[in-house]
């Protein structure tokens, strides 16, 4: 009893302090100072919420830039975040990438050379909002053709959307796919038919 009584009291005490007061205080401050971020960095287009700037979403069809394959649910499902967890020798991984490579080569006949390492591999979260700049440029000819835009313009748009390394040295340069596609839609709002030609990789 000599030990159990303080044990009970301290558990209760810290539950109130760190489990209720602390998170509620943080919630209040964050909602006050950073309401946009605290709510999920929601993105609006044409007056409605179309997603979050931080979460990737599925894009199909030749006229949109495609994100990476996603292992989250049926693809970019935030209710099932996670990676494929396939090991490097797993035949399932090899078959998946092989199929994705074939599809990518078919859809992007203008692209030659090795495919950027991120474009056909699934991310850890399944919600990766970004692709590498090289992955965006690799898709540029296809998108330009489908939209009836000049390749130079599309490449320029990618350049504008590219975020450099943070503070000049942290992480990797990246292109937010949702932002790029929204910018594209503003540029060529009534683009030609965007009917999906192929399912996204994976």
């Amino acid at each position: 009893m000599r030990y159990l009584s303080p044990a009970f009291r301290f558990v209760l005490l810290f539950t109130v302090l760190t489990g209720i007061i602390y998170p509620l205080a943080v919630t209040g401050l964050c909602q006050w100072w950073f309401p946009h971020q605290a709510d999920g960095s929601l993105v609006r287009a044409k007056g409605r919420i179309v997603g979050s700037a931080l979460l990737g979403q599925t894009f199909t069809g030749a006229a949109f830039f495609h994100p990476r394959p996603s292992a989250a649910g049926k693809g970019y499902d935030p209710m099932a975040s996670g990676g494929s967890n396939l090991g490097p020798t797993n035949p399932m991984l090899l078959a998946r990438v092989k199929a994705a490579v074939a599809r990518f080569r078919r859809d992007n006949p203008a692209f030659r050379g090795p495919i950027p390492s991120d474009l056909l591999t699934a991310s850890g979260s399944g919600l990766d909002p970004d692709i590498s700049p090289a992955s965006a440029y690799a898709q540029a000819p296809r998108v330009a053709k489908a939209r009836g835009l000049s390749l130079i313009l599309v490449r320029h748009l990618i350049g504008q959307t590219t975020q450099p390394r943070q503070l000049g040295f942290l992480g990797e340069p990246r292109v937010d796919v949702l932002r790029l596609n929204l910018a594209l839609a503003r540029l060529a709002p009534a683009g030609p038919a965007t009917a999906p030609r192929s399912r996204p990789a994976m």
């Binding site: 494929s84 390492s117 991120d118 990797e172 990246r174």
Partner: peptide
């Protein structure tokens, strides 16, 4: 090896 990794990292 980018399988399972995020582009930003």
């Amino acid at each position: 090896n980018m399988e399972g990794k995020e582009v930003r990292f």
